[in-house]
């Protein structure tokens, strides 16, 4: 099991990357009044057919060949559902996959969101040829990191240039702090 929701996000997005997606949306929507945290991941990868969608919630299904279990999606589903929340997956071959997990944050079994900045930062740095749209929202306050906009602003400078990387890191940190006032979500 993972100790942070942000690790689930990192893991699930790896599926999108392996599915050949070149645009991935990651949304984290927090409501403190209803105590809900919703994670949405949408990709434009190869998608799955109906049978694969049903099968992927089963830990003994995987598309890889190194071993016979695939725990990413079952882990995420379990970690959301055990808080009284929900999990859903929609996919269509050739169109992509949408995954939504909703957590009840006041449940004792709810794991913290954790270091979501590290998740987004490592995804952006490791997959510079892909575009990410990342939205973080708490009670209606929000910020967005869109690598398409960053790409346009920096011209041809790679994201792992020291100054650009430092900017992305600070951007995530400062804007997240402004949205959630540094609260541990």
């Amino acid at each position: 099991m993972f100790s942070e929701i942000s690790l689930h996000i990192l893991d699930i997005v790896e599926n999108s990357i392996k599915a050949g997606a070149d645009f991935i949306e990651i949304k984290i929507l927090v409501r403190t009044d209803t105590r809900r945290l919703r994670v949405e991941v949408q990709d434009n990868g190869c998608g799955m057919d109906k049978e694969q969608v049903q099968a992927c919630e089963n830990p003994f299904f995987t598309s890889r060949t190194t071993r016979k279990v695939g725990l990413g999606i079952p882990f995420l589903k379990q970690s959301a559902e055990c808080t009284g929340g929900s999990f859903s997956i929609r996919s269509a071959v050739g169109q992509g996959t949408d995954i939504t997990a909703e957590y009840c944050t006041d449940h004792i079994d709810c794991i913290p969101l954790g270091d979501v900045n590290a998740t987004v930062y490592s995804l952006v740095m490791m997959n510079q040829e892909l575009d990410f749209y990342y939205q973080y929202q708490v009670d209606g306050r929000q910020f967005v990191l869109d690598t398409r906009e960053i790409r346009e602003a920096v011209g041809g400078i790679p994201f792992d240039n020291e100054e650009i990387a430092a900017f992305i890191k600070d951007f995530l940190k400062e804007n997240k702090n402004e949205v959630d006032s540094g609260a541990i979500v």
Partner: peptide
Amino acid sequence: MKSLEELKAIRERMQGQVGLRS
């Protein structure tokens, strides 16, 4: 909120001396 404006300044500073990672 931190905006992407700063990136333009970084980009201008880097003009001509971009050592692309080989």
